[in-house]
Structure formats: structure tokens, C-alpha cells
């Protein structure tokens, strides 16, 4: 139904991800969103850090940059500021963006630099073998929280919102059509945009926490997803364990590269500097 092939490096298939990993669903939603916007492959630079989701750029026929752990947004900042006409999309995970890369995440949001961050939240470090992450829920087991996690988790979207992002949305891989719309809006947004995607890791997280098959995990997502509108009418107790989906932030404010360009223009027109 949809021609994904024009955006893919088909000779790199099959995908590295485990059976039932949701990351491929996000990749597809992203490609449909890009197609809707009508961006050419050359106009996109896709930057990632380290982790399962960060392997994504290897499969897409864009300018692709697979960086060091946590630093995708920092590298992307350089690409975007050096070439503001480029659409720069960051693909990252919960550990990559909010643990080791947390500083870059909040500061890019504060700066309101026109990056689109697709943040794959699977509540675990998958690639390194299922260690506890900043979004592992309290009580859940990980290879480094064998007795259950003691640490409360980050609200990733809330963090971006508090730090000043222009656009923040949360979706799930079950709601893939909705996700596509969020990603489209996020890319179109002039400013720092985040789409947090809840995606299951059946191998490193689900199995250890007896959450059943990948199908069960997606069904759970379906049952636990609550739209923003519905959530507004629910009590905090009722919202416990739910995933609130929807566009959480969508505001217009000055974007960094545009402000910088304005400054440069003013300075050029000013005679007798210093």
C-alpha cells in the first residue's frame, strides 16, 4: 500500500531488531510522515546515538549519522546550525536521550533548535542486555535491578515540555496511524520537537517481567493507552500505569537558527563594527 522502498537501503535488510520489537513500526510511521511532507532523501539528515533504536539510520537512504552514546542531539546541533536548511531528525532511546544524553536533550529543548527527536521509549537498555533505564517503572526487573527497580522514572515528554520544547507528543506503536500524524507535525514544526513513542521490548524487558509475548505487550499498550482528552477526566489513581497519548505541547516561539540568521543579517548591515 505504501512504497517504503524509495527511502530504504534494502540491501541492509532484514532489520537487526528482535522479533516483536516495535522499532520497525516507528520507522514505517516515520517514512510515511516524511512522504506526506514531501521531503527528498537529500534534505534529511538522520542522527542517532547508541542502542537498539539508534541502529535505525543504517536502514534509511538519507544522510545518516550514527554517533556516540547519548550524543546524537549534540552532533545534530552541529549539523543543523551549520546547515539550517537541512531537516534534521534524531532517533534515540530512553537510555540514550535521558540518561547519558539527558543534558543535551534538555538544552536543545531550551534553545528551541529546530530538531525533531523521535524518542523510542522501551523502558530498558535493550542492546546491552536489559539493564534498568531512567524510564523503567518502579518494581520492574532488569538485569541490573534483579530485585525490582527502586528508582522512580522520568516523564520524558514532561521533561521536554518543562525544558521549553515547541512540540511534544506521545504515541504508541499500537496507534501507528496516530504516531504517523504526530511525527508529521513534529517535523513540520519549526522548533524543538519530541515524539515519545512507547514501544515494547519483548526480549530484554517483557520476558524478564513476565509480560507475555510481543503480541501481549502490544495488547497491553492498546489497553493502557489513554488519550489526552480522556485522561483529563481521570483521577491520578485511575491514571496509574496508563500511557497518556496525544499532542502535549504545540506552541510557536522563536527558533534558534532563525534568530541567529536575523542577528547575522543585522550585523552585516551595521557599518563600523565593534
Amino acid at each position: 500500500m505504501f512504497e517504503y522502498a524509495k527511502y530504504l537501503r534494502l540491501n541492509k535488510f532484514p532489520l537487526i531488531w528482535c522479533a516483536g520489537c516495535g522499532d520497525g513500526i516507528v520507522l514505517k510511521a516515520m517514512l510515511r510522515a516524511i512522504d506526506k511532507i514531501g521531503l527528498s532523501n537529500d534534505e534529511i539528515t538522520m542522527v542517532s546515538g547508541i542502542g537498539c533504536s539508534s541502529r535505525l539510520p543504517g536502514y534509511v537512504d538519507f544522510n545518516t549519522l550514527h554517533t556516540t552514546h547519548g550524543r546524537a542531539i549534540a552532533f545534530a546541533t552541529g549539523v543543523k546550525i551549520a546547515k539550517p536548511e537541512m531537516t534534521v531528525i534524531v532517533v534515540t532511546g530512553d537510555g540514550d536521550a535521558t540518561a547519558i544524553g539527558g543534558n543535551h536533550y534538555i538544552h536543545a529543548a531550551r534553545r528551541n533548535l529546530d530538531l525533531t527527536v523521535i524518542l523510542f521509549n522501551n523502558n530498558i537498555y535493550g542492546m546491552t542486555g536489559g539493564q534498568v533505564s531512567p524510564t523503567t517503572p518502579v518494581g520492574k526487573k532488569a538485569s541490573t535491578s534483579p530485585y525490582g527497580n527502586l528508582e522512580p522514572s522520568f516523564n520524558i515528554s514532561g521533561l521536554a515540555q518543562a525544558a521549553g520544547a515547541s512540540f511534544v507528543a506521545r504515541g504508541t506503536v499500537h496507534g501507528a496511524h496516530m504516531l504517523e500524524k504526530f511525527i508529521e507535525k513534529a517535523i513540520r514544526k519549526k522548533g524543538f520537537s519530541v515524539v515519545e513513542v512507547i514501544t515494547p521490548c519483548p526480549t530484554a524487558y517483557g520476558r524478564r517481567n513476565r509480560m507475555g509475548t510481543a503480541v501481549n505487550m502490544i495488547q497491553d499498550l492498546k489497553e493502557n493507552a489513554v488519550t489526552l482528552k480522556k485522561a483529563a477526566k481521570m483521577s491520578p489513581e485511575e491514571l496509574e500505569g496508563k500511557v497518556v497519548t496525544g499532542v502535549l505541547v504545540d506552541i510557536d516561539k522563536p527558533e534558534y537558527t532563525e534568530e541567529y540568521a536575523k542577528l547575522s543579517e543585522q550585523l552585516k548591515n551595521k557599518v563600523g563594527v565593534d
Binding site: 554517533t67 552532533f75 545534530a76 546541533t77 552541529g78
Partner: peptide
């Protein structure tokens, strides 16, 4: 990280 990204962008 930023200077590496910028250099790749030319």
C-alpha cells in the same frame, strides 16, 4: 559532538 556534526555538514 557539535563540531563533528558541523564538519559533516560542510
Amino acid at each position: 559532538g557539535a563540531i563533528i556534526g558541523a564538519s559533516l555538514a560542510g
